[in-house]
């Protein structure tokens, strides 16, 4: 646990927080501005607002945001003698990998919280929607955060191996495009085992877009969660094995 707590200490004064706050707020703003400018109504209240904000957010920005966060948390390790110090401690490779993922998971959860909060504020202040969003969006949010994990694990592995900040983010962009294609062309089976595809799929949960039925059923939720956890475990195991064989430069 020491290594996880140490990772959280490194977040102090980190640029990561800017990504966590700005990216979801940008998504909310985009959805709101689009609605206001095109003079459309929120026919279905909270549901329509969610559609306008979250579906687009899930297609590209979210994967890129997670990738940027992964690059940011690894960037500090590529400086000076930090790699040597990181691996010169009595900590296993798996612990190093898991500690980074734990931080990314927390950041992803924070990002989703900001998104939800932004959505509620926009719904209330801009559109004067009644009540609060239905509770199922909370469940969907948890699924989205879990679906961030495989992408976070994969991007974390890439950022671990690459000193470059931008290269892993570029990979995420390609991945997101691929994921969107998978989801849009309705090859759901494949989308579920590709991290970017899974993330795209999860953000459509309950929206009725593309492959989604519009209902949040136990079956879909269970499948998404199982796929997310399974993929994450596989990527973490792979990354830890790679790190165990790596020569530190």
């Amino acid at each position: 646990m020491g290594s996880v707590r140490a990772e959280f200490l490194k977040l102090k004064r980190s640029l990561s927080w800017a990504v966590v706050v700005l990216l979801p707020l940008m998504a909310v703003t985009t959805g709101v501005v689009n609605t206001v400018v095109s003079d459309q109504q929120l026919g279905n209240g909270w549901h329509t607002l969610w559609l306008r904000v979250v579906v687009f957010y899930g297609l590209f920005p979210l994967a890129l945001g997670v990738a940027a966060l992964a690059s940011l948390v690894w960037r500090v390790e590529h400086r000076g003698g930090n790699w040597n110090a990181l691996m010169g401690r009595p900590v296993s490779s798996a612990q190093v990998v898991i500690a980074k993922l734990a931080v990314l998971a927390a950041l992803a959860a924070a990002m989703q919280t900001v998104l939800l909060a932004g959505l509620v504020v926009a719904g209330k202040l801009v559109f004067a929607l009644p009540g609060i969003p239905p509770a199922r969006y909370l469940l969907v949010s948890v699924v989205i955060v879990l679906a961030c994990l495989p992408v976070a694990a994969l991007q974390s592995g890439l950022s671990m191996l690459m000193r470059s900040f931008a290269a892993p983010v570029a990979v995420a962009l390609l991945g997101a495009v691929g994921g969107v294609l998978l989801v849009v062309t309705r090859v759901e089976g494949v989308a579920m085992v590709v991290p970017y595809g899974l993330l795209g799929r999860a953000t459509q949960l309950g929206t009725g877009m593309f492959v989604d039925s519009g209902a949040v059923t136990t079956g879909v939720v269970a499948a998404l969660v199982a796929a997310a956890l399974g993929l994450t475990a596989a990527v973490v195991a792979g990354t830890a094995t790679v790190l165990d064989r790596l020569d530190i430069r």
């Binding site: 020491g2 290594s3 707590r5 140490a6 200490l9 490194k10 102090k12 004064r13 980190s14 500090v76 400086r79 000076g80 003698g81 930090n82 040597n84 110090a85 990181l86 010169g88 401690r89 009595p90 900590v91």
Partner: peptide
């Protein structure tokens, strides 16, 4: 084993004390 290889470690965005606390947490 304590070690210092090539360039010194430490996180530039943290203070000296925070860097020491990090080591403290890691190694108990």
């Amino acid at each position: 084993i304590g070690s210092l290889i090539e360039s010194p470690p430490a996180y530039g965005h943290l203070t000296g004390r925070e860097n020491m606390r990090l080591v403290q947490r890691l190694l108990d």
